[in-house]
Nucleic acid binder design. Structure first.
Lengths: 109, 109
DNA sequence: GCTATTAATCGTAATATTGCGATATAACGA
DNA sequence: TCGTTATATCGCAATATTACGATTAATAGC
């Protein structure tokens, strides 16, 4: 099959899973960390920093943009990427709701 | 290819990605929420709750167990699953470190 | 011992993801 | 205009994931 049965789950479950899935790749975490660290919103520098082909990085950036974790602005020939603070706040809250409810739960075995 | 180049990234990046990836499936989020909600650590009840085959649920449980999010104890013919609080605390901290550094970052475009 | 129940594992088909090279697009400077 | 630079997109091959049914293993109750 290979096809996730999204219809079995709530919109919230699907949405949260979608973001976690995008974060769930080391290259995308490395990209995020690099964007955060280099406050100047560098773009092509990501390709130099991480040892992956330009087309591969471009695809990862597109995934990050798709779920709203980052946004890009065209600046001449290059594109300036940076994090979308509002979206991050929202995801932080959703993850922490799950984390906290788990931590508060009874450890029974 | 289809093969993630883990050697390009740090151990921390790979580890965090690994957990996020496991959380990144709606069925596993639903399983986690169910385990948290039903404090009695029910096991086979997950199959009834979520409309997936028993073998599929078992595989998802194995993934969750693999990264340490849950643990299972054999109780007669059934298995009692519950969250691993220590692991959750650790992941919560790692995710929040990433989230907070992003939110503190300059939004430049 | 036999049978029912529960959960894990195996084998598999369908689909998704990852990564690359090649190509396209788009803007800048000479 | 032409060449250069930067990024996106396409097409492909290799691998991973998802889900299922069938089977196995292990325990409980008779």
């Amino acid at each position: 099959m290979g096809l996730t049965k999204t219809e079995n789950f709530t919109q919230e479950q699907n949405a949260l899973a979608s973001v976690a899935k995008v974060i769930g790749h080391p290259a995308r975490i490395a990209i995020l960390e690099h964007i955060i660290k280099s406050q100047s919103c560098v773009c092509g520098s990501i390709v130099d920093e991480i040892g992956l082909a330009q087309s591969t990085i471009s695809q990862h950036l597109a995934e990050l943009k798709r779920v709203g974790l980052i946004q890009g602005t065209i600046e001449g020939t290059s594109v300036c990427y940076c994090v979308n603070v509002e979206t991050w706040e929202s995801f932080k809250n959703q993850f922490n709701t799950l984390f906290d409810s788990a931590i508060k739960g009874i450890e029974c075995c």
